[in-house]
């Protein structure tokens, strides 16, 4: 009981220290504990993100516990509560929907545990309780893609959009950003949700190619995997057209396709870097430093002109 009481007092004091001292008392975070609620344990994008987080935690000497939501926000909400119960020193959260994390976030606030969001933003109410968001500017990615498409097509042409899951925040951002900056001369023939899945994009593209054929001047794929799906369908069709294909992510397959001249460009979104940056931001908050509300990943466009300067992001 004494140990527990001391621990409670310690936790309360350290919470107070964070609240009162502010940036002046930039203490070391070594030996502190962080709970990282990640989207999944094994996934082509999430896994390297987790590895980045682990690397940064090791470098800072903090103890990182990774728990996986398996893409279920309900699971994540429970895990958030239990991380707060553990009285860890900081929480890194990968939000999967708008509201589910609210109870846990409120408890974290009461307990004085700082929370940083990674990759995706949550709802407005939730973000008020989150110290900082670390991830790519996905709306900006849409805007950049619109500009690339406009330049490549000379401002005019018919395109198709291969979008991610309906309702997914990343999908909404990348679509809205693209449509906001799209030149008026560019006409969207169809928008299909291929769920960030190469196989689904392949099936959808077969239909689109059959339907629109040589009308297709450009393809905006909201990630590289879907762009690869389209290229595969195009090759199968034997159709002699060469549309402008844009992707996002900077996957190895996109690098290969750009080198082969099949794809026009992609935007780097390095997962390892995202994980590393998120932990670094969280440790700054834990040490009492002020951080920006949004810590963006730089959006670097990779085309055949500059591809030699970069390594695939994942």
């Amino acid at each position: 009981m004494t140990i527990r009481r001391n621990f409670l007092i310690g936790a309360a004091l350290s919470a107070l220290a964070v609240a009162v001292a502010g940036p002046a008392a930039a203490a070391s975070v070594e030996g502190k504990s962080i709970c990282y609620i990640t989207a999944a344990n094994s996934h082509f994008y999430v896994t390297p993100t987790n590895e980045g987080a682990q690397a940064a935690a090791d470098a800072a000497g903090v103890e990182l516990t990774i728990v996986s939501e398996e893409f279920s926000p309900q699971t994540g909400a429970d895990q958030l509560n239990s991380c707060v119960s553990r009285k860890v020193d900081g929480i890194l959260l990968w939000p999967l929907d708008a509201n589910s994390y609210l109870p846990g976030l409120l408890k974290a606030k009461q307990a004085g545990i700082p929370v940083v969001a990674i990759d995706t933003t949550a709802g407005e109410e939730s973000m008020k309780l989150i110290a900082s968001f670390v991830g790519a500017d996905k709306y900006g990615q849409g805007q950049i893609s619109a500009k690339q498409m406009g330049e490549a097509l000379g401002g005019e042409g018919d395109i198709i959009i291969l979008a991610g899951q309906a309702g997914n925040n990343t999908t909404i951002m990348r679509t809205d950003g693209f449509l906001a900056d799209k030149p008026d001369g560019i006409n969207v023939l169809a928008t299909v949700n291929a769920d960030f899945d190469q196989q689904k994009a392949l099936v959808a593209s077969r239909d689109l190619i059959t339907k629109f054929g040589d009308q297709i001047d450009g393809v905006y794929a909201e990630d590289d995997a879907m762009a690869a799906g389209f290229l595969q369908a195009l090759e199968e069709s034997g159709l002699d057209i060469k549309p402008v294909v844009l992707g996002i992510g900077g996957m190895k397959m996109a690098f290969d396709a750009i080198n082969a001249g099949q794809m026009s460009s992609t935007i780097m979104q390095p997962p390892f870097e995202n994980g590393r940056l998120a932990i670094e931001t969280l440790t700054k908050v834990m040490a009492g430093e002020t951080v920006d509300a949004v810590v963006p990943l730089e959006n670097t466009v990779v085309t055949k002109d500059n591809i030699g300067d970069y390594e695939p992001a994942f």
């Binding site: 926000p73 929907d97 609210l102 109870p103 409120l106 408890k107 709802g123 309906a166 309702g167």
Partner: peptide, 18 residues
């Protein structure tokens, strides 16, 4: 639901449960 989760406009209502 059209595959979309519904978000409550009054998110604080049920929080007492936890």
């Amino acid at each position: 639901s059209n595959g979309q989760p519904a978000s409550s406009a009054d998110p604080l209502f049920g929080l007492f449960l936890t």
